[in-house]
């Protein structure tokens, strides 16, 4: 059984179908990428999986159990964590407290002392050693992204949703972030990532879905997807992507 099954999921906003009948599945341990032009429904799809939005139709199953329409904190408790396209750390809290929220409210058990130790370990893992006491508002963009990742990891997810994690980073920072993501997958985490930086996605993911205007227009290994005429049309223009 796949870890995540998205089955003909749709979501409309006032007559516009942001996500239209999208189906795919993610197996445990996979790193799957989602790409598509602006407005193609990537973030909406993430919001549906993470529970920030309820789908109008279709099913979303985790371990075979329907999670569509559950509140975000319940979905987190089932084992899905996310980061946000525009970083949203708890600005007034210290880096350590940010991660502690994830640890104390996520799926991990254990007391306060264990939680603090684990939060500190995660700060080191994402490269924020020495920043535990710094308020999140005073971190740089990449550090805030790292912090959000640590907060998501602290909830002990099985599936991590990364929404444009590399956006706004310079090439060196992007390389660092890629190494980090690879390491997480190597450690057994399943990752679903939306990414605009196509080369990074091609490099990381074994399988890529391409969305356009809310529909899935291609799915497959990076090279196959890149060569797909529909995808080329969507990215480079030309004839309409679908008949």
């Amino acid at each position: 059984m796949p870890l995540l099954e998205v089955d003909r999921v749709s979501k409309g906003f006032g007559g516009v179908l942001a996500v239209s009948g999208v189906s795919f599945s993610v197996a445990a341990g996979e790193l799957v990428g989602i790409m598509g032009p602006n407005g193609s429904g990537k973030t909406t799809l993430f919001n549906l999986i993470a529970g920030a939005l309820a789908p109008d139709g279709g099913r979303i199953r985790l371990h075979g159990r329907d999670i569509a329409g559950l509140a975000p904190h319940r979905i987190c408790a089932r084992g899905i964590a996310r980061t946000f396209q525009l970083v949203r750390p708890f600005a007034g809290l210290s880096a350590l407290d940010n991660v502690l929220v994830g640890r104390l409210y996520g799926r991990a058990a254990g007391g306060r002392a264990a939680a603090v130790a684990e939060a500190e370990r995660l700060l080191v893992l994402v490269g924020l050693d020495g920043r535990a006491a710094t308020p999140a508002a005073r971190l740089t963009l990449i550090d805030r992204k790292r912090l959000e990742l640590a907060r998501a990891l602290a909830t002990s997810p099985e599936l991590l949703l990364l929404d444009e994690f590399m956006a706004g980073l310079n090439p060196a920072e992007t390389a660092t972030a890629m190494t980090l993501v690879r390491r997480l997958v190597a450690d057994g985490l399943t990752v679903l990532m939306v990414e605009h930086i196509v080369w990074a996605l091609m490099d990381l993911a074994r399988r890529i879905l391409v969305l356009s205007a809310g529909e899935k227009i291609a799915e497959g290994p990076p090279q196959a997807v890149a060569a797909d005429p529909n995808v080329v049309d969507v990215y480079l223009g030309g004839a309409p992507a679908r008949a």
């Binding site: 904190h73 809290l93 407290d97 104390l104």
Partner: peptide, 24 residues
């Protein structure tokens, strides 16, 4: 307390708190 930390997370960003498992 844990509850106090969760409340502060809600104060800072309710949506992000929910996504981190906090029942707001």
């Amino acid at each position: 307390s844990r509850a106090g930390l969760g409340m502060q997370a809600i104060r800072e960003d309710e949506e992000a708190a929910e996504a981190s498992g906090v029942g707001a």
